[in-house]
Amino acid sequence: MPDHILELAHGNARVAEAIRQILSTMAESGSEKMREMARDALAGAPLRELALSSVYGDELGEAFGRGWARCQALSASERADLAEAGKDQFGEMI
C-alpha cells in the first residue's frame, strides 16, 4: 500500500485499506478522468495533490455534488443506518 494512503488515513490501517478499496473501485468504473486519477493514486501519486489539481478538480467537484445530493435525499432513518454501518466498519475513527 502506498505510504501516502496510510498517511492520509492518519496511520489507521483499516481506513487506509478502505481508501485503497474505494480507489480500486474508482479505477474500474466512472468517468475516464476519475479512473485515471484513481490509478495514479494507487500507483503512488499523492491523493491530495491529485484532488487539488486543475486536471481532476472539476470532475471531483461534480462527483461530490452528486454524492451530496444523494445524501440529502436520504431519510433520517437511512442516514442513521449509514452512520451505524460506518461505525461498525471504522470504529471510533469517525
Rank of each mutant, 00 (worst) to 15 (best):
D58F: 07
G61P: 07
L52P: 06
W68A: 13
S75G: 11
S75F: 05
G57T: 03
G91S: 06
S24C: 07
G11V: 00
E32G: 09
A80P: 00
A69P: 00
I19T: 02
G30D: 06
E62C: 04
L52T: 01
G67F: 03
R39L: 10
L42C: 12
R79D: 06
A80D: 06
D88I: 11
M1C: 10
S75L: 00
M37E: 02
Q72C: 07
V15H: 00
A51Q: 06
Q21N: 11
A27D: 07
S29P: 06
E7R: 13
A73F: 04
A41Y: 09
A73E: 04
I22Q: 13
H10C: 07
C71E: 14
L74S: 02
H4Q: 15
D88Q: 12
E49C: 01
S77C: 03
E59V: 05
L74H: 00
I19D: 01
Q72A: 12
R20T: 10
P46N: 08
S54P: 02
L8P: 01
A76S: 14
D40G: 02
G91N: 08
D40H: 13
L50D: 06
P2T: 14
G65L: 01
L47Y: 07
A83P: 00
G44L: 05
R79I: 15
G30I: 07
R70K: 15
D40Q: 15
S29T: 15
A38E: 00
M26Y: 11
L6I: 14
A41S: 13
Q89Y: 09
D81N: 09
G30P: 04
S75P: 02
N12T: 05
L47D: 00
A73P: 00
H4P: 04
A51I: 03
L47K: 00
G86E: 10
A85L: 12
A76G: 04
L60P: 01
P46Q: 06
E17M: 06
A85N: 07
G86A: 15
V15Q: 03
A41G: 11
D58Y: 07
I94K: 08
F90P: 05
E62D: 06
D58W: 03
G61W: 08
L82I: 05
G65P: 00
A85E: 09
E7C: 01
L8Q: 12
A85S: 13
F90I: 12
T25R: 12
A38S: 10
Q89E: 11
P46C: 04
G65I: 04
G67R: 04
D40K: 15
S31W: 11
A76R: 11
H10L: 08
D88G: 10
S29F: 10
P46F: 11
A18K: 05
T25W: 10
H4A: 05
D88V: 12
I22T: 13
E78T: 09
L74I: 03
H10K: 14
Q72R: 15
V15G: 00
K33Q: 13
M34V: 12
R14G: 03
E36L: 14
A18V: 04
E59F: 02
R20S: 04
G86W: 11
S31E: 12
D58L: 03
E32V: 15
Q89K: 14
F64A: 13
E28S: 14
M1V: 14
H4F: 05
A83D: 09
K33G: 03
A85V: 10
L42F: 12
P46E: 02
E84N: 02
E92H: 10
R14T: 14
E78Q: 15
W68G: 01
M34N: 09
G11Q: 01
I5E: 05
R20Y: 04
